[in-house]
């Protein structure tokens, strides 16, 4: 589990087209989530999906546009929580680069801090994730005889 999530994609479309899909609320809804995004610096908006209580998530992502450079770069905060006011904070950065008659799109999701995420990241950093997989494997092995995992 990385503290930084990165994705890179290439689209055979000009940056202006890709930009539309990142900044037009209706188009964003088509691939990401319902939202009230506006391409305005400082605009506060929300993404909404179904609550997932098992993940301590009330279904609302609280965001604010932190930086916007048309057809080139967009950053917003990405904060979520269980709905009691406690939020895990993070930041989403999009970068568009014109390349080979198309657009290279980079997504970086980072800066995780807060109640839900930090303890996990800290825990994972100590190699705990590996231990967890080992333990889970061992547990699966012992129950395989009696129940399907």
């Amino acid at each position: 589990m990385a503290k930084i999530i990165k994705h890179q994609l290439f689209f055979p479309h000009p940056p202006a087209v890709v930009w539309e899909y990142l900044t037009n609320a209706e188009l964003i809804t088509l691939w990401l989530m319902k939202n009230d995004f506006l391409p305005v610096l400082g605009h506060e908006f929300q993404f909404r999906i179904n609550p997932m209580p098992q993940f301590n998530f009330d279904g609302i992502v609280h965001c604010k546009v932190l930086a916007i450079e048309p057809c080139r770069a967009l950053s917003y905060s990405w904060n979520w929580g269980p709905g009691n006011g406690e939020l895990t904070e993070s930041e989403v950065n999009w970068t568009l680069t014109e390349k080979d008659n198309g657009t290279e799109l980079d997504l970086v999701h980072r800066g995780f801090k807060g109640v839900g995420f930090m303890p996990m990241v800290d825990a994972m950093d100590t190699g705990w994730l590996q231990n967890m997989h080992k333990i889970l494997k061992a547990l699966n092995a012992t129950t395989d005889g009696t129940a399907k995992a």
């Binding site: 589990m1 999530i5 994705h7 994609l9 689209f11 479309h13 087209v17 890709v18 899909y21 188009l27 088509l30 691939w31 990401l32 098992q54 993940f55 997504l107 999701h109 994730l129 967890m132 333990i135 889970l136 547990l139």
Partner: peptide, 26 residues
């Protein structure tokens, strides 16, 4: 342990699956 694993899988997958949708749309 299962809940922990589920959460990690969901989180790891989140952007990957969303971006696949974006790709399909374009």
């Amino acid at each position: 342990f299962k809940q922990l694993q589920e959460w990690l899988a969901y989180y790891d997958n989140f952007w990957g699956s969303k971006l696949q949708k974006l790709e399909a749309l374009l």
